[in-house]
Design a protein around this nucleic acid. Structure first.
Lengths: 245, 245
DNA sequence: ACAACTGATCTCGGATCCCATATCGTGAAA
DNA sequence: TTTCACGATATGGGATCCGAGATCAGTTGT
């Protein structure tokens, strides 16, 4: 019953099925729900202490996103990401965000430029903090600061590009993959973190100079670099999981 | 009751809610359901002679696609496309399909190249048929031939690009807009039809020459040209509707 | 006359019930 | 012993029922 209360609290001011979809997706991404396993609607319903109705909608929504393969009257099969999936996803985003950077260089407004500068300064602050001698990222403060700055940078870029469909496409793409894995891939190396901060600043400078072509090239390169890091890390994780099995 | 039979027949081997979502979307795109109007779930259910359950899922799915704005306990509002929406959508697709063309130039396989050549030849045949003196496109035969060739060309291009996420992004983007409007925009002018066929052939030739950069540029240009035509036509249609009101 | 309160009604979201179909096991026949 | 057929069971899809919240009209009080 307390479980039910939790759920209700979590879903305040939003559809329950949305919450369920998000939560089930999260569990798949974290490996809590195994790739390749079947999802039973009534099992999930019992798990979350809700009826099958919202579960059905959540499952259907995840099917639409390509997270689950829905087979009529059989069930839903969990589709797993491969390293190749991750790379392909980032390659598409590299194109889209490159385009966004080009548009932003032409159209950005002063308030957005200010937000972009603030995010870039934050990256530098995070690099400095990580470089400090006693820099053990206790309770993930650096991670949350980095994630926040990154979100703001990319969200502002898309806003400045002023193309709603472009923003929607990027959102769709990002939704297909685990979030917040970029920092985990970066944090291992001070060098990568520094490069990342420099990437962001370079993009900002190209935009400030209204050099659309350069902004596009840099943003594209930035995403492809992230693709390398995240894909490699994911391959290592897969290897670890395979050995543990 | 016969209505129910029709629906069941149409949805054979597929979820009813999928069919409903598709049909409701179609009615919105054709103007059968007015932009800005409210959709009531039980009204739709009565309309289609089904219960509210599949209607709910269909409405939710359309909400997820951005076709409807869902307001809890109020209803679903039909969001209309603006000329700007159409242009933005095509601009995104120009980037994505440009990228696809570049990848295809590097990776295409012989069977796919054959399919691409066949589609391009078909375009030439259609142009020739349209140029014939008595070329009144009775029962839309030319339109269906053109649409078919176009589908095959772009589908083959995406297949040759060999990036599942790219294909998914393009599919998502295309779903956001009315389909089959491109031919309607083209068919008015023999000149545009000729240009369109030439565009496709030029893209094919760049791919045959493994010139990725050129293929990208041409594909991008091709889509942007289509964007112009479709947007202009859409603006004219809006004008007509406004006058008729 | 105008504003605020109250309840009737409407609409959606979640729960429960029912049915069609796919799977799997058991038994009978070749 | 093997194979096919039939039935028991499990599962998902659709229909119906119920409850919460929101709108709107009517009434009442200032």
């Amino acid at each position: 019953m307390s479980r039910t209360q939790d759920v209700l609290a979590a879903t305040s001011e939003g559809a329950l099925s949305e919450y369920l979809a998000e939560e089930i997706h999260r569990r798949i991404l974290t490996g809590d729900i195994r790739v390749g396993s079947w999802l039973r609607q009534d099992t999930l319903a019992a798990e979350f202490n809700v009826s099958r109705t919202p579960v059905r909608e959540a499952v259907r929504a995840l099917g639409g996103r390509g997270v689950l393969e829905i087979i009529p009257r059989r069930g839903a099969l969990v589709i797993g990401s491969t390293p190749r999936d991750i790379r392909e996803n980032y390659e598409v985003r590299a194109e889209l965000e490159g385009f966004a950077a080009e548009l932003a260089a032409e159209r950005i407004q002063t308030a957005q430029l200010t937000a972009l500068r603030a995010a870039v300064d934050d990256f530098d602050g995070i690099v400095a903090a990580a470089a400090a001698p006693d820099a053990a990222d206790r309770d993930g403060e650096l991670e949350s600061r980095w994630t926040d700055a990154n979100e703001r940078f990319h969200a502002t870029l898309l806003e400045a590009a002023d193309n709603a469909h472009l923003a929607a496409s990027v959102r769709e793409s990002r939704r297909r993959l685990p979030h917040n894995t970029t920092f985990a891939a970066l944090s291992g190396s001070q060098r990568q973190l520094t490069i990342n901060a420099a990437d962001h600043r370079a993009i900002l400078e190209a935009i400030e100079a209204s050099d659309g072509e350069k902004a596009r090239r840099l943003a594209r390169q930035h995403l492809l670099r992230a693709a390398d890091l995240v894909t490699r890390r994911f391959e290592r994780e897969l290897e670890v999981q395979r050995r543990a099995r």
